[in-house]
Each structure stands twice: as structure tokens, then as C-alpha cells.
Amino acid sequence: MIPLLILTPAILLAAIGAAWKARPVHAALLLALCLSLVGCLYVAMGAHFIGLVQFSVYVGAVAILIVFSLLITRPSDDDEEKVRRMKTGMPALACSLPLLVMLGFTMFKQSALLEAPADEPAMSLKVLGEILFTDYAPAVLAMAVLLTAVMIGAALFAREPSKKPEPPSDS
């Protein structure tokens, strides 16, 4: 309960930064912070393995990918981004606020029914592995195929179109 009360405000603050900051690199780094805090929250909730996987995949791969592509594509000017946000901010708020209200409404109607059980459900790694490779084996295989395809596809997409190098002219 205490980790939950500490972590959720931190997660939300980092997420606000990621959604609002004008500097793209700051937004990406705050996303990394937010996602690693979500990983900590998973650990605090007892899903240790999921928390660590979240940490290594999101911080180690996704956040790195995002900052890297921010560097390759020149990030647009901060002031320009601020001006643009004036134009797009209000409609975006107009769409997301009703959604938030709706989600909150449904949740409060439902969550009163849910009594929080005191005992923590056990998550043994052995059981997780066994379920993963028996009941969920087709899903694991599908995931493996998907990830391989993605790796090859992304490599092909991101390839520089081949050009013959120009021989340097001697001067």
C-alpha cells in the first residue's frame, strides 16, 4: 500500500512531463523514467519477473530506440513546438478529458464491488515458465515468429538506399 502511494504520483508526474514537455529529448527521457517507475510498481505488487522484464525492455530497448531516432531525425525547434501545441492542445484535451471522466466513472462504479483480498497471489518463476511453455506455447511461438519478422523488417526498412560512393576528386 505504501509503495503504491509513493509510486503512483511519481509515475503520473513523469507521464505528464512525457506528454507535455516541449523538448523532445526531455519528453523521451521522462518516458523512460515513467516506464521504469511502472516497473518498480510491478515489483512492489509482487510481479518481480514482469517488473524486471519491463525495466530491461522499456528502458534498455524502447527508450533507447526513441532517443536514438530523435537524434537521427533532427528534433524540431522547441519554440515551434510550443506554438504548434497551442493549436493542437485544446482539441486533444477536448478528446482526452471526456475519456478520462468516462473511465473514472466506470471504474468507481465497478471497483466498489472489488474487495481487495489480503493475501498476495504467489508468482513462482517455475510455474510461470511451465505455463508459458505448455498452455501458452502457441502464443510463445507466434511471438517468436513476430519478433524475428520485426527484426528483419526493421533492418530492411531502416537500410540506407544503396548508392555508389563517389570517388573523391584529387585537387
Binding site: 529529448v25 524486471l52 525495466f55 530491461s56 528502458v59
Partner: peptide, 24 residues
């Protein structure tokens, strides 16, 4: 830790972000 090896690599992922932060 029961998940010692996963923990080692998960924590190691932080180094990359740190290097990026320092460089940028």
C-alpha cells in the same frame, strides 16, 4: 535473489540511458 541474472541485465540497461544522458 531468485531472479539474480534477470536483475543483473535489467539494471545494466540503465547504463545505456546514462551514457546517452551524459553525451546529450
Amino acid at each position: 535473489l531468485e531472479l539474480g541474472l534477470v536483475f543483473f541485465f535489467a539494471v545494466g540497461a540503465m547504463t545505456e540511458i546514462a551514457v546517452f544522458v551524459a553525451g546529450w
